[in-house]
């Protein structure tokens, strides 16, 4: 990696802060589920939004994507497009009229 010791120490402080944020977000997920103060649809949206926040923190800081090589971003962008296509396949089944 070729990073200086001071730079790595700075990274380590960030890792601990991210760890704290991840714990808080996990508690928020469980808390929202336990308290049941939201209607079902909103609860689903909130749980997925929190999961997305947590995943972004892991990817950006633990996986170092906040300062990564351009080629990695291209690979991930392409993967994301194919991933979306995969998730849209179930939606396409709604237009399948053969079964009817």
């Amino acid at each position: 990696m070729g990073k200086s010791h001071a730079e790595i120490s700075r990274h380590m402080r960030v890792y601990l802060m991210v760890f704290g944020a991840l714990l808080v977000l996990t508690a928020a997920t469980v808390g929202a589920w336990k308290l049941e103060f939201l209607p079902a649809g909103a609860a689903v949206a909130l749980a997925l939004a929190i999961a997305l926040c947590k995943a972004s923190l892991v990817a950006l800081y633990f996986m170092h994507l906040s300062a990564e090589n351009k080629m990695i971003y291209w690979i991930l962008a392409l993967t994301f497009v194919f991933f979306l296509v995969l998730l849209l396949v179930p939606v396409l089944t709604a237009f399948d009229v053969i079964a009817y």
Binding site: N69, K70, M71, I72, I75, L76, L78, T79, F82, F83, L86, L87, V89, P90
Partner: peptide
């Protein structure tokens, strides 16, 4: 590429893993 081969390799592998789990999520 600006990357060592190991790093490029692991990211390509992880891309394939996204598709594996993506298929199951779908």
């Amino acid at each position: 590429t600006g990357l060592n081969n190991g790093k490029l390799g692991i990211w390509l592998f992880l891309a394939s893993e996204v598709m594996l789990f993506g298929a199951l999520f779908a």
